[in-house]
């Protein structure tokens, strides 16, 4: 099992300033999954009832000189704590800057080393920066995941390809974040409904109070329908109930804290975000979209999405 690559400047910038801070908010530990074509950072794909997140990069976005080999179809996965990973990257960046030479590359590789704490050699992800002198930093990682675990990750990734039929573009992430923070004081159980007319409906209910927010006429991707004229004068909850009855909306219940967590992903500075509900209400899907810098074209080499587990209303 071998992995060695040199980080690109874009890759360093994407990870250091945007993705690693967002991933750290999603969960302290993540899985890194490396394949011959992609590098991925994953949360909760191996069970757990938290928010599943997948940040997938085309290998060329992050690396040059990418070499990977393993007996498991050249795929390697391991767990790592996000904060030390970010720290190592940041200090590698500092060393590179001090060298005053852009060609001072940051190389990462998987190694097994004897550490002060154990007699057995332990696995590390090593950052080697060749500035004036070579500086090596070791970030401890888990043992590589077993073949069975890697298969489970792969099948979870495949299952996540099942896109919601209707996606709506989230209005304003900062505003939504502020709303969700305040709703946390009211309750935990959030009902999310999304219509084919482009309405997003969030409601927190307890035995004493219902508080909700309705965003209308959002951009729709996928299956869409025209809103019935008769709905115009109804209250927001009524309008939503009617849409569900007509089969033109889906609704699920999720944990408000999970939604709040997924909103932290805006630290990765996506250009826009879409919400959808997976077929049969299997989960709530949040898809972040990144544009090729300077254009409005989707950058297909980066994909970032979250899946919020659905709570059993019973």
């Amino acid at each position: 099992m071998k992995f060695k690559a040199v980080l690109t400047q874009d890759g360093v910038n994407l990870l250091d300033k945007r993705f690693l801070p967002a991933l750290d908010k999603l969960g302290r530990f993540c899985h890194v999954f490396l394949t011959p074509d992609h590098a991925m950072f994953l949360h909760n794909l191996l069970g757990g009832d938290g928010v599943q997140s997948v940040a997938q990069f085309n290998k060329d976005v992050l690396f040059t000189d990418y070499r990977i080999s393993s007996q498991n179809a050249d795929r390697i996965a391991f767990a790592v704590e996000v904060a030390p990973l970010n720290r190592a990257l940041r200090s590698a960046l500092t060393i590179q800057a001090q060298a005053g030479d852009d060609t001072a590359a940051i190389q990462i590789k998987l190694v097994k080393k004897l550490s002060a704490r154990s007699r057995e050699p332990a696995p590390f992800l090593t950052f080697e920066t060749k500035g004036r002198s070579a500086v090596v930093q070791d970030v401890p990682i888990s043992k590589p995941l077993s073949r069975a675990d890697v298969l489970q990750i792969q099948s979870a990734l495949d299952a996540a390809q099942d896109l919601p039929q209707t996606l709506v573009q989230v209005p304003d992430l900062a505003q939504l974040q502020s709303l969700v923070e305040r709703l946390k004081n009211v309750g935990d159980l959030l009902t999310v409904a999304i219509t084919q007319y482009g309405d997003l409906h969030l409601q927190v209910s307890t035995s004493l109070i219902n508080v909700g927010s309705e965003f209308r006429r959002l951009r729709v991707l996928g299956v869409r329908a025209d809103p019935p004229v008769s709905d115009r004068n109804l209250s927001a909850p009524m309008r939503m109930d009617m849409a569900i009855q007509r089969g033109e909306a889906l609704s699920v219940q999720v944990n408000l804290r999970h939604l709040a967590k997924s909103l932290q992903c805006h630290l990765a500075k996506p250009d826009c975000a879409f919400y959808g509900i997976a077929p049969q209400g299997a989960c709530m899907t949040v898809i972040f979209q990144f544009f090729i810098p300077g254009t409005r074209l989707t950058d297909k080499s980066i994909s970032f999405y979250c899946r919020l587990p659905v709570l059993d209303p019973g």
Partner: peptide, 16 residues
């Protein structure tokens, strides 16, 4: 309670 100033985004609440 409901917000009434924006037709496309509304917040509402019902307090028992």
């Amino acid at each position: 309670l409901k917000s009434v100033d924006s037709p496309d985004a509304c917040i509402y609440a019902e307090i028992r």
